[in-house]
Amino acid sequence: CHSECLGNCSQPDDPTKCVACRNFYLDGRCVETCPPPYYHFQDWRCVNFSFCQDLHHKCKNSRRQGCHQYVIHNNKCIPECPSGYTMNSSNLLCTPCLGPCPKVCHLLEGEKTIDSVTSAQELRGCTVINGSLIINIRGGNNLAAELEANLGLIEEISGYLKIRRSYALVSLSFFRKLRLIRGETLEIGNYSFYALDNQNLRQLWDWSKHNLTITQGKLFFHYNPKLCLSEIHKMEEVSGTKGRQERNDIALKTNGDQASCENELLKFSYIRTSFDKILLRWEPYWPPDFRDLLGFMLFYKEAPYQNVTEFDGQDACGSNSWTVVDIDPPLRSNDPKSQNHPGWLMRGLKPWTQYAIFVKTLVTFSDERRTYGAKSDIIYVQTDATNPSVPLDPISVSNSSSQIILKWKPPSDPNGNITHYLVFWERQAEDSELFELDYCLKGLKLPSRTWSPPFESEDSQKHNQSEYEDSAGECCSCPKTDSQILKELEESSFRKTFEDYLHNVVFVPRKT
């Protein structure tokens, strides 16, 4: 048989008469490798580009789960590009990614509803959504962080984005990388972005840091009482949809009607710091009717980097990364020049730590249904340095008659930039024990000054392991946590139920 035959053949030295091919099969003959313009397919066939392209389009058009959109890589027609490569849609070739590779997620039936953290986790790592997304989240724990972890990498949506009755959302900033909504599939009414009845939605994105392009379709905003109209108009300008909307697409009466839409800028007039305090004062603000001013709200939190936005980490279910302080308005003076500047002394802060701070007014709604208010920009203030805590785990070892090696770990709280350490030492008198000992005694162990690591005695271990207080009263049991108490109650309830079950099964009433 021919060298490319495997198993047997019907005619000697003829690659077209093989029972099976050793390498690849091409047009009725066995070959060692697939010549151009053919590609290896499933490690035994040679196919042309049209064959591989037909497989790709067949799966793409069917949208069946589990099928493969075949691509070409290293002269092979394979189910998908290997790690580190992405497909070129024009020629199906796998090309190296520039940075992290995109991950295209194809949605069944063309859309997916995100109504819980669990459903959001199914899209973790996706960068391109081939379909439409509907966000409908009523509640949950730590929602802002969970949504950002699972949806934060999405850069492109081919269909539309719909935010509907998501009472738990305060902001859409968890879509931190969303840059493009194509609108290839539109919501009824030709809408590519749809926001309806979101009672706590206050911000779409921080438009000073976020760009969003909507290729096709219109915007729809109705019944978002805490979303200011200025935020919607800003989205029109940034996304390129200005002029597409009709009169009733953006409701003037049901958007922002319960919001404090600040239209003035508060400026800080005085800032002073110490290692654990920050004193702030800002310019006074009074609405047209000074009785509408209820006070100020001061927001602050630790910020290692200057990239904080107002609604980071917030949701309507209680999660809030900001510390909020309510401040009463100052006494009002008739003389504008003698107006008191409101302020606040922030206490209990960490030394040498940068804080993000902003302040906003708290006002009631005027009778004319106009909203007044003022808010400052987010500023960054760093507390002063102070003395560091003591170095940890000092170790001293003498390696000769004239040297001592000293080692330690950095302090747990540096409280500033540590530039150097101060080492103090003092000579001590020799131990009298060394002169009084009889060095001729056998088995004498000389006193040693070398360091030995501390260890816990058996008594201390027994005390720590004991669940009861000892007789001397030195140790006591740790208080039980809520989960331990709940577990004990469940076990007790189970024992009672099981005992009742045994009584009912074992003891049967005697027939009379």
Rank of each mutant, 00 (worst) to 15 (best):
P304V: 09
A149P: 04
E111G: 15
F175P: 00
I181N: 00
Q121P: 04
N190C: 02
P304R: 15
D393I: 11
N399P: 12
R179F: 09
E310W: 06
V324L: 13
F268I: 04
T127E: 00
Q306S: 13
T361K: 01
S269D: 12
L143I: 14
L180S: 10
G343L: 08
T353H: 08
G131V: 00
Y300D: 00
V104R: 03
F268V: 09
E231Q: 08
E122L: 13
R272W: 13
Q382W: 05
A356E: 01
F290R: 04
E264R: 12
K112N: 02
A120Y: 07
F193S: 00
A385E: 10
L219A: 10
E122F: 03
L201N: 00
K350M: 10
D249K: 15
Y372N: 08
D326L: 14
F296A: 05
N334W: 06
I271K: 14
I154F: 01
D276V: 01
R165H: 06
K360M: 04
P342D: 06
T215F: 08
K226D: 14
T273I: 10
F220T: 10
A374T: 05
P336T: 09
K407P: 00
A120P: 03
L229Y: 13
L147H: 02
V104M: 06
S166E: 01
F220Y: 05
T215L: 08
M235V: 04
R281Y: 14
A356Y: 00
S274N: 15
F193I: 09
V128C: 06
K209D: 03
Y270V: 13
I327G: 01
G243R: 11
I188R: 14
L186T: 05
E146L: 10
N340R: 02
P284L: 15
E262P: 10
N150G: 04
R202I: 01
I250F: 15
R165E: 11
S321P: 03
N320W: 15
I181V: 13
N141G: 11
R179L: 07
D257M: 13
L151Y: 01
T254R: 07
Y160S: 11
S396I: 01
I129M: 03
K267T: 09
L133D: 00
P342F: 12
K360T: 03
S208V: 08
S158K: 08
L298A: 02
L178P: 00
N307M: 04
L362Q: 03
L108G: 12
R347L: 08
R182H: 10
S319I: 11
W205G: 05
L172G: 02
I379H: 04
L293W: 06
E156D: 12
G189P: 11
L186R: 12
R347Y: 11
E368R: 15
N399C: 03
L153I: 14
S269H: 11
C126A: 01
V238Y: 12
Y167L: 15
P288W: 10
G131F: 01
I154P: 01
A144W: 04
P410L: 10
D367K: 11
N142I: 00
Y223G: 10
R179H: 15
C261A: 07
L143V: 09
S338Q: 12
L362I: 13
G217P: 01
R347P: 10
L362T: 05
A251N: 13
S230H: 06
Y305R: 10
D206N: 08
M235L: 13
G131L: 00
S376W: 00
A259P: 14
T254S: 08
R179A: 09
S274F: 13
S401G: 13
N399F: 13
I163A: 02
S319L: 13
C105L: 01
E231T: 14
D328G: 02
Y194H: 12
A303W: 10
V170K: 05
L153E: 15
P287V: 10
I379R: 07
E146M: 12
G140P: 13
W205V: 03
S274G: 05
E246A: 07
V381Q: 13
P391Y: 04
L143W: 15
L280K: 00
V363A: 11
N320P: 04
F299C: 03
I114R: 00
L161A: 02
Q216P: 00
K103T: 04
R182S: 11
Q245V: 10
L280G: 00
V390G: 02
N248H: 02
S158M: 10
Q121E: 04
L204Q: 01
D289L: 04
K253R: 07
L252N: 12
L392R: 01
M235P: 00
L169G: 03
I114L: 08
L204K: 01
Y160H: 12
L180E: 10
T273E: 06
H106E: 08
P394I: 13
R281H: 09
S158Q: 08
S260W: 03
P351N: 03
S400N: 10
E231L: 09
A120G: 13
L406G: 02
C261P: 02
N200A: 06
K301H: 11
L151Q: 00
Q216N: 03
W352C: 15
L252V: 14
S116I: 13
E155K: 08
L298Q: 00
K253I: 12
R369D: 04
T113G: 06
L229Q: 13
C261K: 02
L265G: 07
K177M: 04
R202F: 08
T213N: 05
A259E: 05
D249Q: 03
P288M: 07
P336S: 07
T113I: 06
L331H: 09
I250K: 04
F175N: 01
E109H: 15
A374F: 03
N136V: 13
Q199N: 09
Y223T: 14
T113N: 06
T185N: 09
T309M: 02
S173H: 13
D115H: 15
L108T: 14
G256L: 06
T383E: 00
W352Y: 02
Q121R: 13
S230K: 15
T113E: 10
P329L: 06
G373H: 02
K242R: 11
G373L: 03
V128Y: 08
L294C: 07
N387G: 05
D367L: 10
S376K: 02
K242V: 10
T127K: 05
L392K: 08
W344K: 09
T118E: 10
G139P: 01
T213M: 08
E302C: 10
I135F: 10
G243S: 05
K162E: 06
P288R: 11
G240P: 05
L298E: 00
Q203K: 12
Q339H: 14
I154M: 06
L180R: 09
T215C: 09
D257T: 00
P394E: 03
N211S: 13
Q121W: 02
N200S: 08
G140H: 13
P391A: 09
E283Y: 10
Q245M: 14
I163H: 01
M346L: 10
L219S: 05
I271Q: 13
